[in-house]
Design a protein around this nucleic acid. Structure first.
Lengths: 114, 114
DNA sequence: TGTATATATAAGCAAATAATTATATACTTA
DNA sequence: TAAGTATATAATTATTTGCTTATATATACA
């Protein structure tokens, strides 16, 4: 067995968290680059509170790091989290989502903040 | 990239399915041995319809195979499912649940069917 | 054939979840 | 300091989920 073991209950919590297409996409993006709230709002064409609430769930599990820079708060994935190896394995199966940020750039909507 | 890619939406569906401690434990067990409904009822100390409903979700995604033998229906994991490689990776992080069936045997409650 | 056992399904309900709307906080800049 | 922007939080609501109870189906066996 190569991995640190994760208790079933704890694993179920993280899997449920990732079992939402918005959050799963967010994590896939954050695994490659940091991102601020306004970009997620643009990418998912949803409300800012909806995004903030998804991010809070990640924060509550210490899965992301946040760093304020001026008005903006940048989120990145916390690779030190004990659950990160599991997350990383899962993300390997998912297609790159870099096109989403590329699209923002092309549209000129990769907002001021970034 | 070693794996077949899985669309984000499809991955979110399976992760949500695994994001329940009962179902996650069921899959971990089924990955090692087939099991019938009555055993799950005993293991989880829950109702038979509750177990049947969990199993139906697996069947709907073709994640399990069922085989009737007399009165009993034995479930096993469908290793041919395109999502199985992802599931297998996830299960690697989880502690063995074989003790649960061992306990049934010791208790003499590894019921008539098995 | 009648009764018992194993399983599935349907209906109803309570809890959990995810969105919305409204508001608060923090920072920037004029 | 006032106005604007980015983000968080709280309250409300709609939807989803997982359980229960009741019932149906399939098989076994006396």
């Amino acid at each position: 067995m190569l991995h640190e073991q994760i208790e079933i209950n704890e694993a179920a919590v993280i899997l449920k968290l990732l079992g939402d297409k918005t959050r799963l996409t967010m994590v896939k993006i954050l695994d490659k680059q940091e991102c601020c709230v306004c970009e997620f709002v643009e990418i998912f064409q949803t409300s800012q509170p909806a995004i903030s609430q998804h991010l809070r769930k990640f924060r509550d599990l210490d899965l992301v790091k946040e760093e304020r820079r001026g008005q903006w708060i940048f989120y990145s994935i916390n690779k030190n989290n004990e659950l990160y190896p599991l997350i990383q394995q899962i993300l390997q199966f998912l297609p790159s989502q870099e096109f989403r940020l590329k699209k923002l750039e092309e549209d000129g909507t990769r907002i001021s903040c970034c």
